[in-house]
Design a protein around this nucleic acid. Structure first.
Lengths: 159, 159
DNA sequence: ATAGATGAAGGTCAGAGAAAGTCAAAGATA
DNA sequence: TATCTTTGACTTTCTCTGACCTTCATCTAT
């Protein structure tokens, strides 16, 4: 974990542990100062790691007394799976797919074991195809997984 | 013997002696530099020597702070794994794969839900490729699944 | 009171830099 | 000859920064 962005990401996520409300406020400059980086790197971390797809909502205010507020979103399982299905599209990269799988685990929709299995399946080294084909196949696989999860849930819920 | 790829292979394998967790991170350029070879030769070594069949799992990340992570699987001498790998081979049809997955469920190695997810993943409608490629990709997927599964259990139980 | 000035936030974006990945072709070797 | 190794030119992905822009609260002079 050599890069700063990962460290800042972890730091922010740890802050959430002390915020049972799931709402956090930070100051951009204070953050940049703490990590000795350019203020814009904080935006970079936010836009790459605290996105809607990853379950966060960010808002902010400029000027004196400004802030950046990060909210951890609460989900409804069925809607959530449908949204993910829509978001996958025709083609998906390994890192995007991994983020989705990790999110499914964080939301306790899949077990740790299922997460590991799925990460292995979508891994580049385990899909011996040309990059473009690989991303397409990966999208199909992900959608198949989501569909199976939805189906499994429906059968369980509806008797 | 004594070609560079073999030497790099040995070197990496020795590095595992100091990693009791069986997880190693290397830098591609640093490696290439150490052995005075083209960086892409490191990929060659990884894809020919550190395969699932040989008991390794590889993942990586690009960009600043990038890395290549090699996991030495905990279950390399497992007879059961060897049998299944042999059954899968280089290429496997949908129905053969399905039979193996159902067998795993009957043996209570995987849950019902995992069975459903996996059957969806290996289904031909979810692998949009020419039949020959599809069977090869399916074989990789099956091996990745079995490997991830057994490794997860081995790490959980054995340590 | 109020327009304008000031300073204190945060936002944007393009570009440089840092890795790793791909693939075809050339070179060895058995 | 067939397979395995090695290379290098090109690509893609991810990180980090700095210059410049926008927004907001408050202070100041009228």
């Amino acid at each position: 974990m050599a890069n700063l962005s990962d460290i800042i990401e972890d730091f922010i996520k740890k802050m959430f542990d002390e915020m049972p409300e799931g709402i956090l406020e930070i100051q951009r400059n204070e953050m940049a100062n703490r990590f000795q980086c350019a203020p814009s790197q904080i935006n970079y971390v936010l836009t790459t790691r605290f996105t809607l797809e990853r379950g966060y909502f960010v808002e902010s205010r400029r000027g004196g007394g400004g802030y950046i507020r990060i909210k951890k979103l609460k989900i409804r399982e069925d809607e959530f799976l449908k949204d993910i299905f829509e978001a996958i599209g025709e083609s998906i990269s390994g890192s995007e797919a991994k983020a989705i799988i990790e999110r499914l685990w964080e939301e306790e929709i899949i077990t740790e074991r299922e997460m590991k299995i799925l990460c292995a399946v979508i891994n580049k080294y385990n899909l011996p195809l040309r990059p473009a084909d690989r991303d397409v196949v990966r999208a199909y696989i992900m959608k198949a997984v989501i569909t199976a999860l939805l189906d499994h849930e429906a059968r369980k819920g509806g008797k």
